[in-house]
Nucleic acid binder design. Structure first.
Length: 496
RNA sequence: GGGUCGGUAGCUCAAUCGGUAGAGCAGUGGCCUUUUAAGCCAUUGGUUCCGGGUUCGAGUCCCGGCCGGCCUACCA
């Protein structure tokens, strides 16, 4: 449909029947302009937010002070010569009561022409209605911004997923739960920063455009830089640059930032997602264990006020106390039901995997079959916080090898809510061992060899523990979201 | 990428065997000075996602496409 923008006067000879709500609202807007109001230019001074205003009327008071609020009309109940409406602003909703005999006949006539979705300012004293709701008795109101499109339905809200993601603003206006979830997400990220600042970590920013994207084995997004006429990748991890800063003498650094992985979409994967990584010199993965547990406990306590998280499944995740530790090998042996799993030849492992109904590619390496067992039958059972330790060295080329067991590395993988949420390592700082580990990966895997990083290691990186945490996944279980897309304001979608 | 389910009014949803496409909310016109999904009366509004096909007749059946949900695969 194309509107004729050149025709600024509404066609008065064809009365609007109300079928085209956009046209009806546009006609109202034109009418206002003719009467000398600009429905977009006015501002309104807020004295309080909706919830601040409501708190001013305490139990013992009959009438509160005068307040001035502004927001979007989300409920509108006209009753002849008086009306109730609800105004939504940044921290909630407040009800207002408008009477014809208090604002005047003319004002009331134009007030009745307002629409759901319009922004208005209201000034008046607080009182309590019959049913006890704190309400503003309007002495003055003004339209601040006209909304030309109608809001989604008031009771069911917006449920169409596609529209929720593509027009997130509508979701935020009408779905309280969604609005609340994104406020919580913001609070969580704020508490994460607070935690690290308090521990004397330096918050830094490292490049998103990199000529070599290392630190993980995911496929990158590629782009081209015209000025230098060369290709760049978007980063897939923060790790290698943060470690360069350890070399540079920043003993404690962290970054919260977006990383990009050119892989599939799923309920738990978005191609751009938010990663927290922290590196601390003169500690190891054990130190990271204490840090990670404290971090998540403090964040949950401060942003949710509890360490007991009820899941949609009905059970409760208990974040309190000291968290369970379990060795990778023990979990595997337990899951497959035989002590000699790690001594079995590959053919026997494949056989057993088939028995357990795990689909495995016979081309896989031994350790990959084992890891499939972990990912497909163990990981989703780790609902209570569990540090999985002593992971096979092949899985993490960037970690230190365990002193008394050269087959494993000094790392943990923290699982909560059946999801891997935060890995941490005693970071590998021997440049030769690091190079060997990289070389084994390059070619068969997607990790690229970052020579510049190895050069940095040759200058000496102090012993350190490091950890990474998928912020979106943390938000998923802290806010009981069903899907990663419900925790990302504008998730990646197929363009129209 | 594969499987599967879906797309109907601004929104939330109906539509029997293939037989005139409906309701609630929103809108429009009235009534209503403490409502809470306000209420009452009246009423407008449809390229049934798009394009083909079968049929006397298609929202419904078939084919192709677009978009999405869920499952699955890739993502140490």
């Amino acid at each position: 449909m194309s509107e004729d923008k050149s025709n600024s006067t509404p066609q008065q000879d064809t009365p609007l029947d109300g079928s085209d709500q956009f046209a009806v609202r546009q006609a109202k807007l034109e009418q206002m302009r003719e009467n000398g109001f600009d429905p977009f230019r006015s501002n309104w001074e807020q004295s309080h937010t909706s919830t601040e205003a409501q708190s001013l009327l305490t139990e013992d008071m009959e009438e509160g002070p005068e307040v001035s609020v502004a927001g979007r009309i989300v409920a509108f109940r006209l009753m002849g010569k008086a009306s109730f409406l609800k105004v939504l602003d940044r921290d909630g909703k407040v009800q207002a009561y408008v009477r014809k005999d208090e604002i005047g006949e003319e004002e009331y006539a134009t007030f009745k022409k307002l629409d759901l979705g319009d922004f208005i300012g209201i000034r008046g004293k607080l009182f309590r209605t019959k049913t006890g709701e704190v309400t503003i008795r309007a002495q003055e109101y003004r339209l601040v911004t006209k909304a030309l499109r109608p809001l989604p339905e008031k009771w069911h809200g917006l449920t169409d997923n596609d529209q929720i993601y593509r027009q997130r603003y509508l979701d935020l206006i009408v779905n309280d739960q969604s609005r609340e979830r994104f406020r919580t997400r913001s609070q969580i990220i704020r508490e994460i920063r607070e935690f690290f600042w308090n521990r004397d970590f330096l918050e830094v920013e490292t490049p998103m455009l990199q000529s070599v994207s290392g630190g993980a084995a995911a496929r990158p997004f590629r782009t081209h830089f015209n000025a230098l006429d060369c290709d760049f990748n978007m980063r897939i991890a923060l790790e290698l640059h943060l470690k360069r800063l350890l070399v540079g003498g920043f003993d404690r650094v962290f970054e919260v930032g977006r990383v990009f992985r050119n892989e599939g979409l799923s309920r738990r994967h978005n191609p751009e997602f938010t990663m927290l990584e922290a590196y601390q010199a003169y500690t190891d993965y054990r130190g990271m264990m204490e840090l990670t547990q404290s971090l998540i406990q403090q964040v949950a306590e401060r942003s949710l006020g509890t360490l007991q998280l009820e899941r949609n499944e009905g059970d409760v995740i208990d974040l309190s106390g000291k968290w369970r530790e379990a060795k990778y090998k023990d979990l595997i042996i337990d899951a497959v039901g035989r002590d000699d799993w790690f001594e079995l030849p590959k053919s026997a492992k494949l056989e057993k995997a088939k028995e357990l109904r795990i689909e495995v590619d016979p081309e896989l390496e031994d350790f990959e079959i084992t890891n499939d067992v972990f990912e497909k039958i163990i990981e989703h059972t780790l609902v209570q916080p569990t540090f999985v330790t002593h992971i096979p060295r092949e899985l993490c080329p960037l970690a230190k090898i365990t002193e008394d067991d050269s087959s494993t590395i000094d790392v943990f993988e923290l699982c909560i809510n059946g999801q891997e949420i935060a890995p941490a390592y005693s970071e590998q700082n021997d440049p030769a061992v690091q190079r060997d580990a990289f070389m084994k990966q390059v070619g068969e895997e997607t990790q690229e060899l970052d020579d510049d990083f190895l050069l940095a290691l040759e200058h000496g990186m102090p012993p350190a523990g490091g950890m990474g945490l998928g912020v979106d996944r943390l938000v998923i279980f802290l806010t009981k979201a069903a899907n990663i897309r419900d925790t990302i304001l504008f998730p990646t979608l197929r363009p129209f």
